[in-house]
Design a binder for these strands. Structure first.
Length: 419
RNA sequence: GGAUGGGUGGCCGAGCGGACGAAGGCGCAGCACUGGAAAUGCUGUGUACCGGGUUACCGGUACCGAGGGUUCGAAUCCCUCCCCAUCCGCCA
């Protein structure tokens, strides 16, 4: 959530930044400002009336104590009349406030100053490459062919159990999935200083508002019909919200959390994309990295976060590149994002395997995560999140990059002790 | 799912219609004492919003789990809901 004070003081600046994301955003700024004005007018009137009421009520109490019943009765009538007006205004305020909040919650974060300007993913900027794509002396198979032939990936049974975009994994695939999770968690906890966390995967709506999935992206989420609970689309949701509503001590920061969880996405906008294989599934595993840090350290921490995620692919010895997302491709909550894209031989291109973002105080403000600084002032923290990595996609990368002519594939050296 | 007991400030805990933003304690900060520290003493110590000065300030409003209601006035009385604990039931 953006700071309403910033919107009030620099509406043109905010509009300009939002325009870099999408031409359609700027009008919402005027909308929210109009509601803010209306809201403040009503608040002022209510508070004046209440101040008067409180003053008179106090007087009534004193009059009673002094035994001046008649005077007290007179004052009562005056206060009663004010009460009617207050009730009416409060109803009005409730309505305006709700519209104000809904609107404010639907405004995305502002891109950081150094984010490249562009309209969509074609204008993302490559930052660096690691490793050389292997030269094959045969036409590399896509992972779904490798997996089906070896009896490791069963797409038909996935559909039988749960429908399209669900898959069953057998034997080495299932085992490799588990090995990868352990490998990633070990790396981040032992080498990078993260605290391992296990979290629920069902969460309340306000938690999803905290990280920015709600209210705008309800159609991307799975929701229970019996209870007001949603399946998480990423552990970013639970890890970031661990400290929702809390005021942390400055010396507790930074906090580094990592968790393995399954993730659930309806992929509402992705009909027809990547339908084959396990690249885009409704349920997938991910090891997530979340950092809660002091504002002045967040960009330094973002660079470190990306490197920590990259380390996974380096140890697995799989080529990748890092791209910086342009303004038009940034996610809703992000001020700045690096994607890590892994080399997929069968597609002869790099595909996203991790997304690392600094949301600055956008999520902190929504989830009310603050810390008390040395002067005793409460300030919003900055929150960062990144995949470290998407496990299913890492499995794809291994199957394809380590494949052999006979249709089998090798296991990366670092994973052997996990198998 | 059933029964019982609870939800008050950073924490513990009192208050049960008017002077209560809320006793007391702990914690924290400052000062005094000390060679330094401990102990002790004194002082201070919530948040959000609205308005004015627009730096360290002042005024107002709200907040005692949430939402309604009664009342001139609610932490306090009434209703609804949520959450927590314990026991029973069910269950991996």
């Amino acid at each position: 959530m953006l700071d309403i004070k910033l919107i009030r003081e620099k509406p043109d600046f905010v509009k300009e930044k939002l325009r870099l994301r999408d031409e359609n955003f700027p009008p919402i700024v005027d909308e929210v400002l109009a509601l803010d004005n209306e809201r403040r007018g009503i608040i002022r009137e209510i508070e004046d009336l209440k101040a008067e009421r409180n003053r008179l009520s106090k007087e009534i109490g004193i009059l009673y104590r002094e035994g001046k019943r008649e005077e007290a009765e007179k004052l009562k009538d005056i206060v009663s009349a004010k009460k009617e007006r207050i009730d009416c205004l409060e109803r009005e305020l409730r309505d305006v406030e709700k519209r104000f909040n809904d609107t404010l919650l639907k405004i995305p974060n502002l891109p950081a100053d150094d984010v490249p300007i562009g309209k969509d993913e074609t204008e993302n900027v490559e930052v660096r490459r690691w490793g050389k794509p292997r030269e094959f002396d045969f036409e590399p198979f896509p992972h779904w062919e490798i997996g089906e032939k070896l009896g490791l990936l069963d797409f038909e049974r996935g559909v039988k159990l749960s429908g399209s975009r669900f898959t069953v994994m057998f034997k080495e695939a299932a085992k490799l999935e588990r090995a990868l999770i352990n490998f990633m968690l070990d790396l981040h906890t032992k080498e990078h200083g993260y605290t391992e966390v296990w979290t629920p995967v069902l969460v309340k709506p306000e938690i999803l508002i905290g990280t920015g999935q709600l209210p705008k992206f309800e159609e991307d989420l799975y929701k229970l019909c019996e209870e007001e609970l949603y399946l998480i689309p990423t552990a970013e949701v639970t890890l970031t919200n661990l400290h929702a509503g809390e005021i942390l001590k400055e010396e507790e920061l930074p906090k580094y959390y990592t968790a393995y969880t399954p993730c659930f996405r309806r992929e509402a906008g992705a009909h027809g994309r990547d339908v084959r294989g396990i690249l885009r599934q409704h349920q997938f595993d991910k090891v997530e990295l979340v950092k809660i840090v002091k504002p002045e350290e967040s960009y330094k921490e973002l660079e470190k976060l990306v490197q920590e995620a990259e380390k996974v692919l380096q140890l697995l010895e799989i080529p990748y590149r890092v791209v910086e997302l342009c303004t038009g491709d940034l996610g809703f909550s992000a001020a700045k994002t690096y994607d890590i894209e892994v080399w997929i031989p069968s597609q002869n291109r790099y595909r996203e395997i991790s997304s690392c973002s600094n949301t600055e105080d956008f999520q902190a403000r929504r989830a009310r995560i603050r810390f008390k600084d040395r002067e005793g002032k409460n300030r919003f923290v900055h929150t960062l999140n990144g995949s470290g990595l998407a496990v299913g996609r890492t499995l794809i990368a291994i199957m394809e990059n380590y494949q052999k002519k006979d249709g089998t594939f090798d296991i990366p050296e670092v994973l052997k002790k996990y198998m």
